[in-house]
């Protein structure tokens, strides 16, 4: 079942002068199409200005398409009467937490969302406590949100949406200002919401590492989706991503560089543990029985000095380096 469905969406920002005359039109979405399955964890990547936040605001009904439609759980965001229901279904964490903070004290702020959608008072208490605990902000519950550090505000904003328990949560760069532990905690929390409660997660981020655990990665450019696949598929396309001003996780980057320099490292490696195994196998374990040399049979790998990619897919050593790795997308590697 689809929870979000954007169909041929176009959107332009208009700048008007004092007399309401249009001075400038900047297109932000042009023919954006994206279906998101209920219960999935989708990560949205894209360079600055590619339209990610604009898309997020469409889902929340804050902006309406000039052309095309956006449906949230089959509800058309253009239908005014459905707006409240839509915002209950799809909760949003904005890019700048200051735009989101309303209450005078942290607790009130987090309670604001659930109150607004009519959650019974007794239950609000529990939800607020639970949400603050999840983002590790319980000890600040009586503070004024304006007097928190940048990262603390961001956590409060996340708690506010969690307390509404929407079916789907869209997070617009929620970890941009968090320390490494905070980043891990947020990612773990949203994964839990996804796995345990089946909440659909749409995570917009510039941290490529955060996309590794998603079910699906969507890349935007020029106001539309230009790449769509599993993390392994997407991160195998290193050059394409770089051309879109993006990158791959550092581990993937290292694997890619090693491969370029001639080591037969498979492409699309995402996690430290995977790379570790591959390197150990190539450098160490192969050494143990040095008489039955399973490694190169004298054919020197092309070191790629001419800038071209050595084709290592064909002259791999015999041993199977990657037995249980799914969707290796062999050959799709570039």
């Amino acid at each position: 079942m689809k929870i979000i469905d954007a169909v041929h969406v176009f959107f332009d920002y208009m700048r008007k002068d004092e007399n309401d005359k249009i001075e400038e039109i900047s297109p932000a979405l042009s023919d954006m199409n994206l279906e998101i399955e209920k219960g999935s964890f989708v990560c949205v990547l894209g360079h600055n200005g590619s339209g990610k936040s604009t898309f997020a605001k469409m889902v929340n009904g804050l902006l309406l398409p000039r052309e095309g439609s956006v449906y949230v759980a089959d509800m058309d965001t253009a239908d005014d009467e459905l707006l409240i229901k839509i915002r209950e279904t799809a909760g949003m964490v904005f890019q700048n937490p200051d735009n989101q903070i309303i209450g005078n004290i942290v607790e009130e702020d987090v309670a604001f969302g659930p109150e607004n959608i009519g959650v019974p008072t007794a239950e609000i208490r529990d939800r607020v406590d639970e949400a603050l605990e999840a983002v590790n902000m319980t000890k600040y519950k009586d503070r004024s949100p304006g007097k928190l550090s940048g990262g603390q505000k961001q956590r409060v904003a996340i708690a506010g949406v969690m307390a509404m328990k929407p079916e789907c949560i869209i997070l617009d760069e929620p970890t941009a200002m968090l320390d490494p532990k905070g980043r891990k905690d947020v990612i773990r929390t949203v994964r839990e919401l996804n796995k345990r409660d089946g909440i659909t997660i749409v995570l917009i981020t510039h941290y490529m590492e955060e996309a590794v655990d998603a079910d699906r990665v969507v890349v935007m450019d020029g106001g539309r989706v230009v790449m769509d696949g599993t993390p392994r598929e997407i991160f195998s396309r290193v050059e394409e991503l770089k051309a879109l001003r993006l990158d791959v996780p550092q581990i993937t980057e290292l694997a890619y560089e090693l491969r370029k320099a001639g080591m037969p490292v498979p492409c699309g490696i995402l996690r430290k543990e995977e790379l570790e195994e591959v390197i150990m196998e190539l450098l160490f374990e192969g050494d143990k029985g040095s008489c039955d040399s399973t490694d190169t049979d004298g054919t020197e790998p092309d070191l790629g000095t001419d800038g071209t990619e050595p084709d290592l897919g064909t002259d791999r050593p015999e041993q199977d380096l990657d037995t249980d790795r799914e969707d290796k997308s062999e050959g799709a590697c570039q």
Partner: peptide, 30 residues
């Protein structure tokens, strides 16, 4: 796990150099 690498490096470029050094040594040996 027994590889003779400098474990204080923090960047992709440095790590790449370290690992390739071992790889080359091994290639030469074999």
């Amino acid at each position: 796990r027994g590889l003779q690498v400098d474990d204080s490096v923090g960047t992709v470029a440095e790590a790449c150099r370290e690992i390739l050094r071992l790889w080359k040594e091994k290639e030469e040996k074999s």
